[in-house]
């Protein structure tokens, strides 16, 4: 009884904390100064049609580097904890995959991979970007592993893609210090014609590396969890 009322009090406390948010909140009618600067000068300064991409990759590029690092750390801890000894074979009986799932996965997996690549290449023009594209690629891998549970996914390849794209991301940032205005500055390449695929300086290149890195990291997490299913 005491416990229940304590939980109730904690919930009421959080509700009171959050109530401040919408008491007297009637929605915004204008952008604040910072957002207005990003919206008005963003297209000129960065050349990216997607302003969220401009904020994520250029204005707040360092934060994105930190975020990718956190994701790398999570993936590394998962693979450290779930390491399976080489040669530990599947010790559970699996039904064979149904015809529908098998055929559908054969058709859909390449399309899903292609769509993921499309999403991160067009991250500066349309909704999407490196993180979303990477997640789509990893979801294609989930479908593939559902259809063919015995398939081995190469950890070497995942590690290689992840390391190369991570290093390239940092190197592009350093090149920005040497040849342009600062770390991760996107004017390393010319801004190009606004709204075309070769525009916004190095943003597409950075997003391609981010997409590959996120896709590889999430694929690594999924593969590790998948390989551990037979032990439980």
């Amino acid at each position: 009884m005491v416990k229940n009322s304590l939980i109730f009090i904690v919930l009421i406390g959080f509700a009171v904390l959050l109530a401040d948010l919408f008491v007297g909140f009637n929605g915004n009618t204008d952008l604040n100064t910072l957002a207005n600067h990003y919206a008005v000068s963003g297209p000129e300064e960065v050349g990216s049609a997607n302003l969220v991409t401009a904020v994520v990759v250029t204005y707040r590029g360092l934060d994105t580097l930190g975020e990718v690092t956190i994701l790398f750390l999570a993936a590394a801890i998962v693979s450290f904890l779930l390491k399976v000894e080489a040669g530990a074979s599947l010790n559970r009986k699996l039904r064979s995959t149904s015809e529908i799932l098998d055929t559908a996965s054969r058709i859909l997996v390449p399309v899903i991979f292609l769509f993921g690549i499309y999403v991160f290449i067009n991250g500066h023009l349309s909704p999407g970007g490196g993180f979303q594209g990477g997640a789509i690629i990893a979801s294609g891998l989930v479908l593939m592993l559902l259809a063919q549970p015995a398939k081995e996914v190469g950890h070497k390849l995942i590690t290689l893609v992840e390391s190369i794209s991570g290093i390239s991301f940092v190197l592009i940032g350093v090149a920005g210090v040497l040849f342009a205005a600062g770390f991760l500055d996107n004017k390393l390449l010319s801004l190009g014609k606004f709204g075309t695929i070769f525009s916004a300086g190095v943003i597409p290149i950075i997003y391609i590396f981010v997409g590959l890195k996120v896709g590889a990291e999430l694929s690594g997490i999924i593969t590790n969890l998948h390989e551990n299913q037979n032990e439980a």
Partner: peptide
């Protein structure tokens, strides 16, 4: 406002990890 959207994009990925 693009800034909260960029923040949430970051937060979703970290939440996933």
């Amino acid at each position: 406002d693009p800034v909260p959207q960029a923040l949430v994009l970051t937060a979703i990925v970290i939440g996933l990890g």
